[in-house]
Simulated scan of single mutants.
Amino acid sequence: MDQLLALRVFVRIAESGAFSKAADAMNIPRPTVTKLVQDLERHLGTRLLQRTTRRVSVTPEGAAYYERARRLIEDLAEMDELAAQTRAQARGRLRVDVGSILANMILIPALPDFRARHPELHVDLGVSDRHIDLISEGVDCVIRGGELADNTLVARRIADLDWVTCASPVYLKARGVPKHPSELTARAHGPADRARVPGHAIAGYFSSLTGRAFPLEFHRGDERLQIAGEAVMAVNESTAHLSTLLSGAGLGQTFRFAATPHLQTGALRTVLDDWTRPRHPLHVVYPASRHLSAKLRLFVDWVAEVFAPFDDRPPR
């Protein structure tokens, strides 16, 4: 039995809750994963994992063994890194996850520069707006927007992004240019009339986690408005949302950096410019329980450099 490999497999199963996820993450055949765990349990003379039809969980003995095994693997990784510092190039593979529009417009165009600097360091990039669990999915770090509620994660703030409210000229010609956010919602025609006058069509964005659409936000002085409006079309992916705005389907809010090329060509126009929305914070996030390896540190520092030109925070 390759005990070190068996330890790595056991740790990954304990974190992901599934033999199949461990096999996929480590690129090992599933029967091999099963045999390694069986051999490890036979070697130790105790059951480490409790298997059910729905999930795999650690036994009390497995929980204690997991903590020691995880620390051992982290120590081995640190030993390898210290020994490798004499080498000219960082080596290995990183699994990174990032939202669609950030990947397509910022990160992917810059990746050749990272590869040129570190040709032996490979990046597996997961691209989606889906909220992921870093531990269970074996991800080294994510670039994540919004406020962070999980205090088990370490976050480095890399930018704050401005929003714009915009629509295509075709849409604005057909529906008119709103002068106030209240015009975006349907409203009663008159006191005695129950009929509703349609507001503007909203190109909406809904959460992959909850399935609910995010409202548009408008701030001006002490005024704070949230507008749901009539979402004639809603998507849960940021690049598709920009395409929806460009198609003329409706009016919505997107990041200024994403809209800027289309504002310059006239494919989009901003509206309600005297209203703002709070900037969207961006972080590079990784699990606090994991050792910040040299290769991950290199990537995090590089990402901060790449996103710096897109940071809309005022200079300090």
Results as ranks from 00 to 15, higher is better:
residue 162 D to P: 05
residue 169 P to C: 07
residue 148 L to T: 02
residue 162 D to Q: 09
residue 136 S to F: 04
residue 132 I to N: 07
residue 173 K to G: 07
residue 168 S to V: 11
residue 167 A to H: 00
residue 137 E to L: 13
residue 136 S to K: 11
residue 155 A to Y: 06
residue 152 T to H: 06
residue 185 T to G: 08
residue 163 W to F: 13
residue 187 R to W: 12
residue 177 V to I: 14
residue 186 A to V: 02
residue 145 G to W: 00
residue 159 A to D: 04
residue 163 W to S: 01
residue 167 A to S: 04
residue 176 G to W: 01
residue 165 T to F: 12
residue 154 V to S: 12
residue 157 R to N: 11
residue 163 W to Q: 01
residue 155 A to E: 01
residue 133 D to M: 10
residue 144 R to W: 04
residue 156 R to G: 06
residue 186 A to F: 00
residue 179 K to Q: 15
residue 181 P to R: 05
residue 152 T to F: 03
residue 125 L to I: 13
residue 125 L to Y: 09
residue 180 H to F: 06
residue 185 T to M: 13
residue 149 A to K: 14
residue 121 L to C: 09
residue 158 I to S: 07
residue 142 V to D: 14
residue 163 W to C: 00
residue 135 I to Y: 02
residue 146 G to L: 00
residue 125 L to T: 02
residue 133 D to T: 06
residue 124 D to L: 06
residue 182 S to R: 14
residue 150 D to A: 11
residue 154 V to M: 11
residue 187 R to K: 12
residue 129 D to W: 02
residue 150 D to N: 14
residue 147 E to I: 13
residue 174 A to S: 15
residue 147 E to C: 04
residue 145 G to Y: 00
residue 127 V to D: 07
residue 181 P to C: 05
residue 128 S to I: 09
residue 183 E to C: 05
residue 180 H to A: 06
residue 179 K to L: 12
residue 126 G to E: 11
residue 171 Y to P: 04
residue 139 V to L: 14
residue 167 A to M: 02
residue 154 V to R: 14
residue 136 S to E: 07
residue 126 G to N: 13
residue 183 E to D: 09
residue 179 K to V: 06
residue 132 I to G: 01
residue 125 L to G: 00
residue 132 I to Q: 09
residue 185 T to F: 10
residue 178 P to Q: 08
residue 122 H to W: 09
residue 140 D to F: 08
residue 184 L to S: 07
residue 189 H to P: 00
residue 169 P to Y: 05
residue 159 A to T: 08
residue 163 W to R: 11
residue 150 D to Q: 09
residue 155 A to V: 01
residue 180 H to V: 04
residue 140 D to Y: 10
residue 137 E to G: 04
residue 175 R to K: 15
residue 168 S to M: 08
residue 128 S to D: 07
residue 178 P to A: 10
residue 168 S to G: 12
residue 134 L to W: 08
residue 153 L to P: 03
residue 135 I to V: 05
residue 147 E to Q: 10
residue 127 V to T: 07
residue 170 V to S: 14
residue 127 V to Q: 10
residue 183 E to G: 08
residue 182 S to C: 07
residue 133 D to V: 10
residue 124 D to N: 08
residue 129 D to I: 07
residue 176 G to P: 03
residue 138 G to D: 02
residue 174 A to D: 15
residue 156 R to I: 11
residue 184 L to W: 12
residue 166 C to I: 07
residue 153 L to H: 03
residue 155 A to I: 03
residue 124 D to Q: 13
residue 163 W to K: 03
residue 164 V to T: 05
residue 154 V to H: 12
residue 176 G to D: 01
residue 129 D to P: 04
residue 187 R to D: 05
residue 146 G to C: 01
residue 179 K to P: 02
residue 161 L to I: 12
residue 137 E to C: 08
residue 171 Y to W: 02
residue 181 P to L: 08
residue 162 D to F: 05
residue 159 A to C: 05
residue 155 A to Q: 11
residue 139 V to R: 12
residue 185 T to E: 15
residue 177 V to A: 08
residue 131 H to R: 13
residue 144 R to E: 11
residue 173 K to E: 15
residue 166 C to M: 13
residue 173 K to S: 15
residue 138 G to C: 03
residue 143 I to C: 06
residue 176 G to K: 04
residue 167 A to D: 00
residue 153 L to Q: 03
residue 168 S to P: 10
residue 180 H to W: 04
residue 172 L to S: 05
residue 152 T to M: 03
residue 166 C to F: 03
residue 187 R to Q: 13
residue 171 Y to E: 03
